[in-house]
């Protein structure tokens, strides 16, 4: 896919790398959604919009002439700040109505998409490549940026395990996941935990949007295409990051294989269809992993 296939080994290596890096990209995209779903039990349908916001942060940073890497912290902070407002004014009244929360966040997505269109126009934008070129992996030349995405996914995964296992916030969040009523009775400020979690989730989504920019063009509706895929992965993964990684690897791998050997169009629906089937057979998905 990335390099001209020289030999059979090289083709297989490329396929393998495609599978792993596709899984990594899916993982990066879906973590923000999983964070929020895991703790708040709310599907944030504005997730696609936060991805778009992150991508436009990269565009804005480019327009300002800053170092392209500055887009990463800018996106995280912007996403988290907007997420904080969203939780307070839109999501908080809807905790008892999870289906309505899906709709309200979808509506928010429409609003954000239109605001971006008003600000930046509806045309497709391109950003500077963060890491251009290819690298040699066991004799196969492969996109450096996709390899970087793999590293980023691992960093996010490890960072999150540390956050959940090693910090006070993580402990509180786990308490809320397991038994919110008890956590509240024990004096945890569950309202604040929800708020912070939502901010982190939106920040991560925006960060993921920035990380996407070298791989895809940027337009006001770009997030929608990624929303459904990540939503399905999260449904399969339940509340666990390990399960999400597994789901990304299996379903993302299937997507690459179908795209390569059958048709890219069918590849585009592989994740969604497989996720629906997995959930039909085992309603808890991979969450017991």
């Amino acid at each position: 896919m990335m390099a001209p296939p020289h030999s059979k080994e090289s083709r297989q290596m490329t396929l393998l790398l495609d599978i792993i890096t596709t899984a990594a990209i899916l993982f990066i995209i879906a973590t923000g959604l999983l964070t929020i779903f895991g703790v708040l039990k709310i599907i944030n349908f504005a997730h696609g919009a936060w991805l778009t916001v992150g991508a436009y942060c990269a565009v804005a940073v480019g327009d300002l002439g800053w170092n392209p890497w500055a887009a990463l912290p800018v996106a995280f902070v912007t996403g988290a700040a907007l997420g904080g407002l969203t939780e307070r004014f839109i999501v908080r009244p809807l905790y008892a109505r999870p289906l309505d929360a899906i709709l309200a966040t979808w509506g928010l997505g429409i609003i954000i998409g239109q605001l971006i269109t008003l600000g930046f126009g509806r045309d497709v934008q391109f950003t500077k490549a963060l890491l251009p070129g290819t690298a040699d992996v066991f004799g196969t030349s492969y996109s450096v940026y996709r390899l970087f995405a793999l590293a980023a996914a691992i960093a996010i995964g490890l960072g999150f395990s540390w956050l959940m296992e090693g910090t006070r916030l993580g402990l509180s969040a786990r308490a809320v996941i397991m038994n919110e009523a008890l956590a509240r009775a024990l004096g945890l400020d569950t309202r604040r935990i929800r708020w912070v979690t939502f901010m982190i989730g939106c920040g991560l989504a925006a960060l993921a949007g920035t990380l996407l920019t070298p791989l895809t063009s940027v337009d006001p509706n770009m997030g929608v295409a990624w929303l459904v895929g990540s939503f399905m992965l999260v449904m399969v993964a339940g509340q666990s990051f390990a399960a999400l990684a597994l789901a990304c690897l299996l379903l993302g791998g299937a997507q690459v294989i179908v795209s390569t050997y059958v048709s890219p169009i069918l590849g585009g629906i592989t994740v969604a269809v497989l996720a629906a089937v997995v959930l039909r057979i085992s309603p808890k998905g991979f969450s017991r992993v």
Partner: peptide, 26 residues
């Protein structure tokens, strides 16, 4: 199916249009 959740119904209702659209594309 017995024991299916509201969320699952919404999930499937998202998948179906996507599948139909892709079938149209192909």
């Amino acid at each position: 199916y017995p024991g299916s959740t509201d969320f699952y119904a919404t999930v499937i209702s998202l998948v179906v249009p996507i599948v139909v659209t892709q079938v149209i594309y192909s």
